[in-house]
Amino acid sequence: MEFSQIKKVLDIRCSGLFEAEIDRHTIRVLPENWLTVAKVLKADADLTFDSLMCLSGFDLGDSDMLGIACHFYSMDKGHMLEVIIETPKKNPTIPSIANIWRTADWHEREVYDLYGIIFEGHPDLKRILLPDDWEGHPLRKDYVQAETYHGITIKKDKTYWE
């Protein structure tokens, strides 16, 4: 199905809960409407997005919003959809879809680890790549590298170069 047809089905099922960007083939959803739209994407007979390909966080750096981008694919219908959800940097929370697509379980943990976005309803939200006592969320654009971690200097000693 083409993007325009997907948009038509979504207009019928969950009108008003999303905004479509036709030239980029993406839809934007607010965090409070996300669970409803996600359930429609999975369960609807015309859409059947049964596989979540990728869930990535992003920080564009020029505004005070963090966001996630989800890419869905339907294995029997063969169509693709991108969904973007943005949330303010001060208090970032997005509902979790880990119980609908189990792929999202570890991907959301990674976004929490590196960006600090809290996923409500996630079964076990804790850090996955960095140690449990790490401070800060490194992939944010305003992240400042710490000096030491457990007594080990992090920055490279370049005194013997210069």
Partner: peptide, 13 residues
């Protein structure tokens, strides 16, 4: 070495 916030810069540390 340049932007690795989680990399030990040499095991001789």
């Amino acid at each position: 070495w340049q932007y690795g916030y989680h990399v030990l810069k040499g095991v001789d540390q």
